[in-house]
Design a binder for these strands. Structure first.
Lengths: 204, 204
DNA sequence: TTTTATTTACGGGACGGTATCGTTAATTGA
DNA sequence: TCAATTAACGATACCGTCCCGTAAATAAAA
């Protein structure tokens, strides 16, 4: 990326972000092995050497793009999780979460990340560290809260429960005939209900 | 593929299988975008034209290669599922299933299939129809059985429960630091237990 | 029945064209 | 004045097609 102050012409930070954005787009469109430095440079409106000067290769560039340029949806603060009941947090977040998860962008990114997990583990590692782990810790806090309340079975491993929820949803959106946002909302409720994190309101 | 009886020299069926095998290998190694007809032909020991004579393009070829992959894990017959208790079926199958699912081959194929789900839906559709659906029907039968017995909550949607089990496992094997067979066995038991399909034996 | 002609499959390789690679040279700008 | 940048470079890979010489089957003729 942009180096420290040197003597000659400084690098343009906007160039960095343009390259990273182009890299993420092309990763999603074509995957790691389908994307090329040449395309990324072209889409960023930049010469190839401008890319090579900053990153040693495709993998490093895409990994950093995954770290830095994925739009983050809003996550409740840890304090909220401690204070509020899981049921309340979940009911407040579910519609937006369903919308996000059912979107074509999420589907595409999820597919490409999964597809790269074995051949390019560093990519998945970056995604895991920067995007998944923070959310998992939040979910684990919610689950522990719910286990104290008795809604979730106390002997269950929170990591396994999280995998079941996340795995079901990600797997569902990659299946043929993926759900739209409304169907996804019902689906997530069914999953959470099975775990014990959600109880349907009487009227719905 | 090999056409019906014609006038001239018939096509060699072994050539078909050699091409399909090479196509599946290269799909797993490099993904749809990374594989090429040229490589597939070379690995199969065959001229390019011999491939083009049978398939119109990479996608069709790989789709058929995925269809015809013969998974060697044994599936219990539907009669077994009706007759035996789910607990018994599961306990009998779990160790082999854990071994399969934790293997590098399964991880790699799973990653590539997921990775192609959005960009090449026909590929996922072929996999779904030929490999996933039959197993889902078996699992659904087991779940209905278990719901009658009261082990699994009767109001739960079997499709959702299957997604939770399959999703958790596939997601788990694609995470950084994937489990070995022994750890996978414990993991699957935890998942099944949460669903209600498994109860740990007293001594273990 | 035997021979010959015809037809298709096959491995191998060449083709014109395009895309990508990583490097080198020339230009631009703070 | 020095680093950033663009453009050009040769090399390699792949595409889809075509041709060569050979092999293997069927169909027609002797």
């Amino acid at each position: 990326m942009t180096a420290a102050r040197g003597r000659g012409r400084p690098r343009d930070p906007q160039t960095d972000t343009a390259i990273l954005r182009a890299a993420l787009e092309l990763f999603i469109e074509r995957g790691v092995e389908g994307a090329s430095i040449e395309q990324i440079a072209k889409r960023a409106g930049v010469g190839k050497l401008t890319v090579y000067r900053r990153w040693s290769g495709k993998e490093e560039l895409i990994a950093q793009a995954v770290e830095q340029t994925i739009p983050r949806d809003l996550v409740p603060s840890p304090e909220d999780v401690e204070a509020m009941a899981p049921q309340e947090i979940i009911e407040r977040m579910l519609p937006a979460a369903a919308e996000t998860v059912a979107s074509p962008e999420f589907r595409a990114l999820t597919a490409r990340m999964m597809g790269s997990a074995v051949s390019h583990p560093a990519l998945m590692a970056a995604y895991w560290k920067h995007h998944i782990l923070p959310r998992r810790e939040l979910a684990a806090a919610m689950l522990r809260h719910a286990q104290k309340d008795g809604a979730v079975s106390a002997d269950a491993d929170p990591d396994v429960l999280i995998d079941m929820m996340v795995g079901a949803v990600t797997w569902r959106v990659l299946q043929p005939d993926p759900p739209d946002a409304a169907e996804m909302l019902r689906y997530i409720k069914a999953v959470y209900q099975q775990i014990g994190l959600y109880r349907p309101s009487p009227e719905s």
